[in-house]
Amino acid sequence: MKGMTLIVKKTTQLIAGIVFLYGIYIIVHGHLTPGGGFAGGVIVAGSFILLILAYGSDFMHLTREETGSTITENLGILLALMIALAGMITGIKVFFFNWLPHGTVGELVSAGVIPLYNIFVGMEVAASILTIFLALLIFKEEVTKW
């Protein structure tokens, strides 16, 4: 896929970082404000997709990138599952038990394991949406190659 004009490239360069940071903000404030892992993850994936659309994919090794994002995705969800399973060996020993100290309501570091779930779910969602995008891109490249 070809990139776009210089204007688009420059604007994207300026915007993508802010979009990425905003996604991170949504993820880490998941237990305090609306949003959370899923919404933030989509925004983070959006920043990557924006860059790929603006600069084109000619300089990327698409399949290698896809392998990387698949592994990140599975790692994220595996870690979330591990935290849930860790609940089975701590405290009252229940699956999905909130086993960290709960902290004060309204502070950034509070609510026990909920922020951790948000972070890993965000990782999983960002990587999986990027994987879908890359898979479609690979498919398109293969079709045009024939």
Binding site: T67, T70, I71, E73, N74, L75, I77, L78, L81, M82, A84, L85, M88, K93, V94, F95, F96
Partner: peptide, 25 residues
Amino acid sequence: MNPLIPLFVAVPLAGAFLTMIFGKF
């Protein structure tokens, strides 16, 4: 509570994700 009940769901999920991470290598 019977701790085997959630394992019926958690173990195959973990298996699926582990396969995707390490299966390639």
